[in-house]
Amino acid sequence: MSYLGNISQGIQTTWKGMMLSIQYFFQARKGRKKESVTEDNYFEKANGTFTVQYPHEQIPVPDHGRYQLHNEIDDCIVCDKCAKVCPVDCIDIEPVRSPEVFGQTSDGTPLRIHAAKFDIDMAKCCFCGLCTVVCPTECLTMTKEFDFSTNDILDHNFSFSKMTDQEIAEKKQEFEDYQADKLKAKPELPAIKKESDVMKKPAAKPVFKPRIPKKK
């Protein structure tokens, strides 16, 4: 390229670049609208500042977003399905059986088991949402809350049980008394004893056996 060609190219490219950046400078008067991802024009925001000043303002999350788990413990029948289906074992349930039906959930399902412990460790949770799918009373849901960071990882363990230690002990004693009464009434039947033994064992996980196609 010739000497004068170099100069003219240098001036032209510099001018073009400078004009481009000053456009951005003036467009910065307008900021990004805090629209949800479900809005139609969510991806059409090329102009203006893009920053969202997070703690002060945030983009609304969609209703079906999968964030923090919440258990409405009054509606929970402690069926343990969520704990069984959880791929990362983040739900820890300790059931205490009751001798009789002691209440009803809001959809009319009878309550037979007390939840002595219903802990969800959100630090382990993989946000797959399987537990909310299997929940028969729909008491376990994923909320819109996503900002639950803590300084101590143990604080990520959310406890939903409302029972006090004293209540738990009472209910346990109640059920033991009931069992003992039952045994006294029918001492010759060993089947009940056997059943209670089985119940103490941790629930078996469904085993997944991959089918390996045979080579021909």
Binding site: S21, Y24, F25, Q27, A28, G31, G48, T49, F50, T51, Q53
Partner: peptide, 13 residues
């Protein structure tokens, strides 16, 4: 601030 506005940011706030 100039840097931020040219780069679609807000800068110190």
């Amino acid at each position: 601030k100039t840097a931020a506005f040219i780069q679609n940011r807000l800068g110190p706030m």
